[in-house]
Design a protein around this nucleic acid. Structure first.
Lengths: 165, 165
DNA sequence: ATGTACTTTCAATTATTTCTGAAAGTTTTA
DNA sequence: TAAAACTTTCAGAAATAATTGAAAGTACAT
């Protein structure tokens, strides 16, 4: 397999993987393109290599920047902007976990708090409260794990895995 | 807050949470409805409570069954089918992790294997190979963690969390 | 100040996903 | 065996999400 072929294949797969996780395909593809590129990439490059429009490239790149996994950079003598991503997969994973934690765990905990205030003492209400408490406890533990992961490094994670039986 | 109100609110939020994770809203809502119901639920019940069509209810329930998180049940004297879900949140989490592992980790590892066979010895190829190796190593560790989680119980998970600093 | 090179925005279009509902299929009952 | 009770299927409709492209915006250079 030739390098370009391999890169292309990787970009496509990364796109599919992303869309399975509620991340739009183009956004994941732009990220993959940055991952496999040895040089910073311009909007033009993205448009050409991924066959997408300027608007699409611009919007999705912006979202990647907001997520903190892509950064703008400048090349001396060049006027336009270039983009790069951190090639450290662990840093990437941490950043993504951080985002999802903020965007999903927090709203979930808020909903849990809200529905905890349900009135009544009958069997059905008690069952409901028990369910909500279980979800609360689970969510808090997931939150705790994510928090530890975000603050960790690769070796920490590896050591934790080894400690588990 | 009244019980019905709380249930309704929970069902909506569960739907939103699901759709953030690439699970369709109705499917997540059906699951939530089953979670908060003290009795088994029929297709008719779903249609009425979630205001959805028969086909929609049927298809999404089937998918939940395929995922192993909902099961058919029968009520003595009733001809039609009823559905229930396990109220154990940990069992649910394990089942979901199991599904996603199978549906996403395995294809990812296959792609990684494919692009590993890239030809060439130049700097760019080496960089690409290094990236792929990092992703491979990360994916394998994620796979390992998921595997341990799937085989675990709540207490195991809790103990692991405590062991982590 | 004007032109040039580039970036951003967003209304309109296109693609994708989800949902409906009626018809076909299946199982039970009489 | 036939009708009734229920479930499944799937083509088309509707809803939602993603994308385009041209116009507006910005910043730099002369």
């Amino acid at each position: 397999m030739k390098l370009d072929e391999a890169k292309q294949h990787f970009i496509q797969s990364w796109g599919t993987l992303g869309s399975n996780w509620g991340i739009n395909r183009t956004m994941a593809q732009i990220h993959a393109l940055l991952l496999v590129s040895s040089e910073p990439i311009s909007t033009e490059d993205m448009m050409e290599q991924l066959q997408i429009s300027r608007g699409n490239a611009n919007m999705n790149t912006r979202t990647l920047i907001e997520w903190g996994i892509v950064t703008k950079t400048h090349i001396p003598g060049e006027r336009r902007e270039f983009f790069v991503t951190d090639k450290d997969i662990w840093a990437l994973a941490r950043q993504i976990v951080k985002q999802r934690r903020q965007r999903e765990i927090e709203p979930m905990l808020r909903v849990i708090q809200e529905v905890k205030n349900v009135e009544g003492n009958d069997k059905e209400t008690k069952e409901f409260k028990e369910l909500i408490n279980d979800i609360d406890s689970f969510t808090q533990k997931a939150d705790d794990l994510m928090d530890k992961f975000i603050r960790s490094d690769e070796h920490w994670f590896y050591r934790q895995l080894l400690k588990m039986v």
